[in-house]
């Protein structure tokens, strides 16, 4: 084998390694923690003023016992939690049928000046548990929070 064709092979292998390395880095480098599709309540609180006025996504669990329906049947108030922080939410939309306490939600909206989050797009996030009706959900609040993938790994 001539030197030149070997050099070409070396070049190709180096290129494959670079591409594979970049892909691995995307997977393992932990930049996913920062490039979030939605923010957790803790992250939203941390951002503070910076999050005001822009359209952001907020994700978390609907806090138990927090759901209140307004008189007109449209205004909906509840709180979203990630176990440590909680954000109060008002929604001017009809929630999907699966909306309930303790389920994951992803909300698109804005953080108002008084610290409540207003949303017009309410999405329910189901986790990968599929159970029959008679099965009891033995999972604690922590397990449910974990299913939101708030910490990547």
């Amino acid at each position: 084998m001539s030197n030149e064709s070997r050099s070409r092979k070396v070049l190709a292998i180096v290129a494959v390694l670079i591409a594979g390395g970049a892909l691995t880095f995307l997977a393992m480098g932990g930049i996913g923690e920062n490039l979030v599709y939605y923010w957790s309540p803790s992250e939203l609180k941390e951002a503070g003023e910076g999050a005001r006025g822009a359209t952001v996504r907020l994700g978390g669990l609907v806090a138990p016992g927090s759901i209140e329906r307004g008189d007109d049947g449209l205004a909906l108030r509840f709180a979203v939690t990630d176990g440590t922080e909680t954000v109060a939410v008002t929604a001017s939309t009809v929630p999907p049928a699966m909306f309930r306490e303790g389920i994951g939600v992803v909300l698109e909206g804005e953080l108002a000046g008084d610290g409540t989050f207003h949303t017009e797009r309410l999405m329910v996030k189901h986790d990968n548990e599929y159970r029959a009706p008679e099965e009891e959900d033995g999972r604690s609040m922590e397990d449910l929070v974990k299913s939101l993938q708030l910490e990547n790994g």
């Binding site: 290129a15 670079i18 970049a22 995307l26 930049i31 503070g48 910076g50």
Partner: peptide, 26 residues
């Protein structure tokens, strides 16, 4: 940049640059 995400997005941009530049070169 409220959440300090700029660095991560730049790194992602860089990573896809590396993937495309090497793969297309091959």
């Amino acid at each position: 940049d409220a959440m300090g995400q700029l660095g991560s997005w730049t790194i992602m941009l860089l990573a896809f640059n590396l993937i495309y530049w090497s793969l297309c070169g091959i």
